[in-house]
């Protein structure tokens, strides 16, 4: 596993989370390098969202540790979260705000420099295709545009680690292509974790695949290895998660 392509930006050790006596996630070890896009697959209820909520600091793990850019998320949450961008399943949008107001609020929350704020805002709107929606109320936008605002919110401060929980839900085929292109672009300078149900998305976008089942990782391989073995991701998924 010695790969000199980039430094480790996110790592977890034996991550576990119980709800009551029920272990939802156990023994999850992740390692993500700069410039890597990791696809997290799994059937409903496999623990993907719980894992992502833990990585973003919204849920404390029962045991195990999380490090973001070498900073322990549990010991120094504020420093660690500064390197993080998170898009939850339901985008956290204030419907009464305009797109500009909202994105500026997010930038301020992430302590973006005042001088850099306007250029960053312009840049992120252009990347997410929101150029013409600046003055629109978020509540009045269509689902697809709201999802784009959600993604813009996660990347406005140029974080090192970007966590996207089902980013292409509710988008039309053209938008899906645009977002995939955006994710590939983001994966050059940062690391991206993306959870999805759409297998072709993983094949197109990701450098590495992990499949979660019943709270733990049952499959972990890079796309290059997968292509060399000439195996079909769909077959592997069905095999591993139907038992």
């Amino acid at each position: 596993m010695i790969d000199a392509s980039g430094s480790v930006t996110l790592s977890t050790q034996n991550l576990c989370r119980n709800f009551g006596h029920h272990a939802v996630v156990y023994d999850v070890n992740l390692q993500l390098r700069r410039g890597e896009v990791l696809g997290l697959l799994g059937p409903n209820g496999a623990g993907k969202s719980t894992t992502m909520r833990m990585l973003s600091g919204n849920l404390a793990p029962t045991s195990g540790s999380i490090e973001i850019c070498g900073i322990d998320l549990l010991d120094k949450p504020l420093e660690a979260k500064a390197h993080l961008g998170f898009l939850p399943e339901v985008p956290p949008l204030y419907f009464d705000m305009t797109v500009d107001e909202y994105l500026l609020l997010v930038a301020r929350l992430h302590r973006v420099d005042k001088q850099a704020m306007q250029t960053m805002l312009k840049d992120v709107k252009q990347r997410c295709g929101l150029g013409h929606q600046s003055k629109h109320l978020i509540g009045a936008l269509s689902k697809g545009f709201q999802q784009r605002v959600g993604i813009a919110q996660a990347i406005i401060h140029n974080p090192d680690v970007i966590i996207l929980d089902e980013p292409t839900v509710g988008l039309d085929p053209n938008q899906i292509l645009e977002i995939r292109r955006l994710i590939i672009e983001l994966g050059v300078a940062s690391s991206v974790i993306l959870s999805t149900h759409i297998l072709p998305e993983v094949e197109n976008v990701c450098d590495r695949v992990q499949i979660m089942h019943k709270g733990t990782v049952v499959f972990d391989q890079t796309m290059i290895e997968l292509r060399q073995q000439d195996s079909n991701l769909g077959d592997i998924f069905t095999q591993l998660t139907q038992s």
């Binding site: 949450p77 504020l78 979260k81 956290p92 204030y94 992430h110 919110q153």
Partner: peptide, 14 residues
């Protein structure tokens, strides 16, 4: 209810 608390909690704000 609007799930926006997530935004505040994942931001570097105590």
């Amino acid at each position: 209810r609007n799930r926006t608390l997530t935004l505040l909690i994942s931001s570097p704000v105590s």
